[in-house]
Design a protein around this nucleic acid. Structure first.
Lengths: 94, 94
DNA sequence: CAGTTACATAGATATTTGTCAATATGTTTT
DNA sequence: AAAACATATTGACAAATATCTATGTAACTG
């Protein structure tokens, strides 16, 4: 498996900030609207927007626009991909 | 599974810097001495030292001192733990 | 034991990142 | 069409991080 350093860093950026981890935890119970997330976190709306962009760029979160609302959910595919990247760091034979 | 935000962030900091990912890639072929790693990276010795501390703190890398040499290797346990943390973000039933 | 080697630590600095207030954009409602 | 609402973007700033040089420490070597 070829591991591109830049891409790997982008993926795992999702998990290396406390607020983003809080957001991911909130999303484990299913899709949530940005305004709902905002309610439950102690950050401003632009800060949430910033984190959601990083989470979406990482492929770990998917955003779905519905009228004026943004609904976010965890991408199971994204998580599985991240897990594959982790596995690639376990000792190889060569 | 209980996911502590701070602890999670510390673990995944291992994977969110390009140089640390390069280091991890070098370690996939097995234990390596710090001086060997230094040879293969375009960073100074104190910078390497700094990254190795972060990698060890995350539990993803293990350091073993032998005389004046430090030997580093990937902790399979650490990787497995990280993978468990990722799985915890997949949708739950509640 | 003096010099050398391998690594860590300290301190300084530049870059990156997280945060906020202000504003823009796009959608819905009246 | 104007007002209200949900979110994104911009710009400023503070905190965290990555990097370097200089120095310290511990182990080996002649």
């Amino acid at each position: 498996m070829i591991v591109d350093e830049k891409e790997t860093a982008v993926i795992f950026k999702a998990f290396c900030d406390e607020n983003r981890i809080r957001i991911l935890k909130l999303l484990t119970t299913g899709e949530k609207c940005a305004c709902k997330l905002l309610d439950e976190l102690n950050i401003t709306q632009p800060t949430l927007s910033h984190h959601m962009k990083i989470l979406c760029d990482s492929g770990i979160v998917i955003g779905r626009k519905e009228g004026k609302w943004m609904h976010y959910s965890i991408s199971e595919k994204g998580i599985i991909k991240a897990k594959k990247y982790l596995t690639a760091f376990i000792k190889t034979d060569k």
